[in-house]
């Protein structure tokens, strides 16, 4: 029997990738899309050959087992609570929420309803990342000492730069992915953060530069560049890289290096077109399997919360100019 899924809001561009992924999975069915923006619901439903629902309530009343939440960050909580109350399992776009209270409320609502909450961290599904993790776990390189990470991108603008919808700029958008990867491979929690932020790329009222130094609770330390610092003309949206220094070796990861370089007069430039694995598809496959089999989702709401806590700590640090405790 296939797993029937609805999408709540297409505000985030990743929702389009997730919709495409659901359509590629044989044992999943995209039952429909609802959105604050009715026209967007209709257009995206047509694009993905599914049905548009007039409201989130209508979608939740349909015969679905799970939802994907792709709304603006501040709306995650409201949609998550609605879906949980309706007994639907949830895959929520990152960042899980824009405040700790919201994230905790989402986790609580799902636990109370007995539904699973998964945070969308697709980078964990990258085969390169899986290889890095396996190498670390094998112990051949010894214990991790320090990590240098980057998640630099082009500025997405739109609601991403409206704090009342996004909860922040580059830091809340980009800190969470690599923080999650670092937690995952070290098995440690971030204890303290020092961060500097600025708006020197675009000079507007959101931070486009974010640079974090993190101390983990069992000794690892790390830096992370989470800036929207790639120019419009950059040949792809951005990067995820890690340089993991271990006792007996160094592992380096460049997650999106499987590209064709395309020179096109029509698009007016150079672009890197990925040919590698589709990590969104791999993530959706794991969510679908967990819902179908009733097994625990691989990335939980708490994982989402831990990453949000680090991003929020970075803001507190940048504001105060001091090293701050995450919790």
């Amino acid at each position: 029997m296939s797993v029937r899924i609805g999408i709540m809001s297409m505000a985030h561009m990743h929702a389009y990738s997730y919709a495409g992924a659901i359509n590629e999975i044989a044992e999943a069915e995209l039952v429909g899309i609802a959105d604050h923006d009715l026209a967007r619901a209709r257009e995206s439903a047509a694009q993905f050959s599914t049905q548009a629902f007039a409201s989130y309530e209508d979608l939740l009343k349909a015969d679905i087992q799970a939802v994907v939440i792709g709304s603006e960050n501040v709306r995650h909580r409201e949609l998550c609570e609605m879906a949980a109350a309706a007994g639907k399992h949830i895959l929520c776009e990152k960042p899980l929420a824009t405040t700790v209270a919201d994230a905790e409320a989402m986790i609580a609502a799902c636990r109370y309803a007995g539904v699973q909450l998964m945070t969308a961290f697709p980078c964990r599904f990258s085969p390169a990342m899986a290889r890095l993790k396996a190498t670390v776990d094998s112990g051949q390189a010894g214990a991790i000492l320090a990590i240098r990470g980057t998640n630099r991108g082009r500025c997405p603008f739109g609601w991403f730069v409206q704090k009342e919808l996004s909860g922040g700029g580059a830091v809340i958008d980009h800190t969470v992915h690599v923080t999650d990867l670092m937690r995952w491979i070290t098995g440690q929690e971030v204890a303290e953060v020092y961060a500097e932020t600025s708006n020197r790329m675009f000079g507007q009222d959101f931070e486009d530069i974010g640079f974090l130094t993190m101390a983990f609770d069992k000794g690892v330390f790390a830096t992370l560049d989470s800036s929207w610092s790639r120019p419009k003309s950059f040949p792809t949206w951005g990067d995820v890289t890690m340089n993991v220094t271990c006792e007996r070796g160094v592992l380096t990861l460049d997650m999106f290096s499987q590209n064709l370089v395309v020179y096109s007069d029509r698009t007016g430039g150079v672009s890197w077109v990925p040919w590698g694995s589709n990590i969104d598809l791999l993530m959706l496959q794991s969510f679908v399997a967990a819902v179908r089999d009733g097994t625990p989702v691989p990335i939980t709401g708490e994982d989402g919360l831990r990453a949000v806590e680090v991003a929020l700590a970075a803001y507190r640090s940048a504001e105060s100019g001091k090293v701050v405790a995450v919790r």
Partner: peptide
Amino acid sequence: EVLQADISGL
């Protein structure tokens, strides 16, 4: 810790 007051649902 979670407070009962902070749990929303049906």
